[in-house]
Design a protein around this nucleic acid. Structure first.
Lengths: 246, 246
DNA sequence: TGTACATCAGTGAACGCGCGTTCACTGATGTAC
DNA sequence: TGTACATCAGTGAACGCGCGTTCACTGATGTAC
């Protein structure tokens, strides 16, 4: 290993450590992260951090990007762990549970991504792509179900427990949005299924946010069971078939 | 009017003005509200604010409480404006739209209530009661439907477009939570309907949070139409009958 | 009605603190010949 | 292999700022007799 690459590796390790310390600070201080406090914890002088990040906002951006990718990694891994790819309901449950577990394990980072926007801070466009990774995992469950013929365009027709929703035409403006959403993430899916997926996406993050942000306190104590029931209900709505062996 | 009560009135007006200025600051600074900045805007010296609020946290608490009550006022008014109390679907739509409009009109206050918790700040218990007012309006739609016989215990049986959900027993721990939730807010409602209400509550706030916090950017442009469709879907799920005249 | 006293709103200075960022610097580590 | 130079990480002092809160004070407004 050349001397230069050693230096590069040390630099990478320092960068990672700064981010790790900053993540710990997020836990207690929220988004008003202090560069000086991070430097103190690292035993350096505050100006030394500028060798690694050009500004406080740059550090925050790095944390946000890491968080999106950390979430996506967890969700992708959970989905991939279901070996029988045809077990759509198991995949749905595994992926959504991964979202919840990641959020509960790292609530401050979750808040950074899905909580109140930090005033005066604009997230760079890379974060959009990172966020899409997670959405893509969930969308793929529907896409796989549709292309394999298990799911039909009208949710419920394909063997789920909910009969088909009475055909009610979508508002054209909404249909336009859904068509656009199909481009990036849900190739080939009929609009009705995209709508189902979007509804589930909202319910999933609505529920996780409620739990992480304390809105479920004194309301729901059986958090695990409640979450699973909600996710099963969404699977019913989408028409995902029951598991082969229960 | 006695001299003393004039003084009291002036005091009340000053208190209200301080809160109004502070609300404006929330819009740009988020939850890290600065007492000094508020005082500057009022043309006073910062220590003068202490005649009205014992600390920065006290001011924040007052804003939070006002926000909860402002939301509840709006929602109650919207529901009450539906003169035919039997029009459950119209009431549901009016009340949920009021939540959304309040949130879009005052996003900073919405974020204070439903966004990331402010680190190191614990909301006093009065806020729980204020929050319950809003929940009660939505619950009352279901209660009215149930006690008048329009809604049945199994959502969908009472005339909605969704057939009854196949009887799947609730986890006992979840059932316990639902029974407790019934105490405060949804007297007499069967567990299945409480669950439906809670699901709707989550979807409603999940969607509004997504919109207010920017998660819908570049995804859904037809915000009004999308919201209404989601709310209609929830009404379907609960079994609320179609409107008499469409 | 008039006066002595009490209450209260607002002032201005100060305390002690933390922050992001810049800048000239030291000394170690790497590179080129 | 040895030396002269360039790169780079980290230091320490400083700038200019804002913050919450306390405290002794002034002067106006209200109250009691």
């Amino acid at each position: 290993m050349t001397a230069a690459s050693i230096r590069a590796r040390v630099r990478a390790e320092m960068t990672a450590e700064i981010k790790a310390v900053a993540r710990r600070h997020l836990e207690t201080d929220g988004a008003n992260l202090s560069l000086r406090a991070v430097a103190r914890d690292m035993g350096m002088v505050s100006s030394a951090v500028y060798r690694y990040f050009a500004s406080r906002d740059d550090l925050l951006t790095a944390l946000i990007l890491d968080a999106y990718n950390g979430l996506a990694d967890a969700v992708e891994a959970a989905d991939a762990a279901v070996k029988d790819r045809g077990q759509l309901r198991a995949r749905w449950l595994a992926a959504t549970r991964a979202v919840r577990h990641w959020a509960l394990a790292t609530p401050a980072e979750y808040a950074l991504l899905f909580g109140s926007p930090v005033p005066g801070y604009a997230a760079p466009p890379d974060t959009i792509a990172a966020n899409a990774r997670t959405a893509a995992v969930l969308a793929r469950v529907l896409v796989d179900g549709y292309t394999s013929g298990v799911l039909s365009a009208q949710p419920g027709e394909g063997g789920g427990r909910w009969p088909a929703r009475p055909a009610k035409p979508l508002a054209p403006t909404v249909r336009t949005d859904l068509v656009r959403a199909r481009e990036g993430i849900a190739a080939g899916l009929p609009e009705e299924l995209i709508l189902t997926g979007l509804t589930s996406w909202i319910q999933l993050f609505g529920l996780v946010s409620f739990e992480v942000f304390g809105q479920l306190n004194n309301v729901i104590d059986a958090r695990d069971a409640f979450f699973d029931e909600q996710m099963e209900m969404l699977a019913d709505l989408a028409g995902l078939p029951e598991r082969a062996s229960v």
